[in-house]
Design a protein around this nucleic acid. Sequence first.
DNA 1: AGGCCGCTCCCGCTGACCGGGACGCTCTCA
DNA 2: TGAGAGCGTCCCGGTCAGCGGGAGCGGCCT
Lengths: 249, 249
Amino acid sequence: MAVTTPEQLPTPVSMIDRVVRILDAFEGADGLTLAQVVRQTGLPRSTAHRILEHLAEVRYLRREEHTYRLGMRIMELGSLVIHQDRVREAATPYLHRLHQSTGLVAHLAVLDANEVVYLDKVGNRFGTLLPSRVGGRLPAARTGVGKALLAHAPSAAHQPERLRAELARIRERGVAYDREEAVRGVGCVAAPVIGAGDTSALAAISVCGPLHQLRFARLASAVRQTVADVWRAASRNAATPRGVAASRR
Amino acid sequence: MAVTTPEQLPTPVSMIDRVVRILDAFEGADGLTLAQVVRQTGLPRSTAHRILEHLAEVRYLRREEHTYRLGMRIMELGSLVIHQDRVREAATPYLHRLHQSTGLVAHLAVLDANEVVYLDKVGNRFGTLLPSRVGGRLPAARTGVGKALLAHAPSAAHQPERLRAELARIRERGVAYDREEAVRGVGCVAAPVIGAGDTSALAAISVCGPLHQLRFARLASAVRQTVADVWRAASRNAATPRGVAASRR
DNA sequence: AGGCCGCTCCCGCTGACCGGGACGCTCTCA
DNA sequence: TGAGAGCGTCCCGGTCAGCGGGAGCGGCCT
């Protein structure tokens, strides 16, 4: 499998496009040989080889024998993005409080098109039960944070009927629920952090855990309290916006 | 300040070098204008402008008005690096256990030249008291994890006398201590995760907290136990090595 | 031994990239 | 009010960094 239609990718013209295409190839597997990169990117062998070597030289990739992996410099830059995000900065202490007061896993996420991207995750106690991961993506419509974000996004009006109804309910209550929509036996309670002037959400916060031990009413008020605290903390320092969210082209 | 000697940087010749230099400029500040990038990188205005725009197009940067910031794609790639690291994967559950049993902050870090880079940090309870950060760097000689790593690194023989003596003691005991060397009032207990065949350390684990509430003897055995568990878990799945550590050119 | 596959290196050609400079905008200061 | 400084944007002719076909090599299968 993974037989991406051979060569039907438009040939990238700029150097940057070539580099991006190569780096993107590493999202699928955690270690690629030259030949694998060539197959995935459709670039000529010598071109791919040259760029891979060059990227390894600047430590954006790491080479071990004949396999390349993403390197340390990319990790450092990536974690810097998260670190510099103002909403995340304001939210982290409150996520810890939320985690401690509920004993569940607390999330912070932003919307990107139809997916959520997680910026923080506190209290990994359920191991791999939860599919969420800092820097990871999940379809928005099937997660608590995602629905909370969609409910307060410009795109809310253009969703399919069934979802639109649920989003309206979420806007009313200020809280979104997920009852094993993403993972069997797991539920979430989520609420959006709304921007200052407008009505679109900057980010969303959730707590997730085994469905049978969730007290929804209690969690709803805890999450609502948390987003209020985060909003206050964020707007205290906030002169200019500074988040990875929003601003698509 | 920050008046990097103007123009004395060697002019980068390749596109990749130029891109790297621009991205590196964002490590200092979380948001740069074109003019600031030009000053920091020494690149011609039009060149910097063209590259910045191009990077924003592929979402490696994000543009808001006239300031550029690191973008979402970089965050995603970066967190992927951490996620794909085998040692980190094996260590995380044990870091949680260590955190819960001690009530302190648990770290996982690797060595890079004379610095440590943190791969995981569990239990942020002391807020900004600890300078460690996932993806962040600190001088190795002044941290617990750093000394544990240096003690089992090839470079151990070439350190200054005083440090060399301490590293020898660490090799004997299998545990490194930090008593407010990095931060006033804070101490750490650390131990290295040693590679399979050889004697050099893959990574190191530590617990850190307020000095007055540290029971060193008890923590030492807890950390030793943890590295043993992690080693076992890591070598279970480990066919090929897969970590951001090691392999300098 | 012959075929297959993967990595590396070479080298002549060319178009992607370079960067000086023009232009327009917004401040600030005289 | 107008000159000047600083900034971002855009243009365009020249050129060299990058391109990529292909040769060479070495390992691993029949």
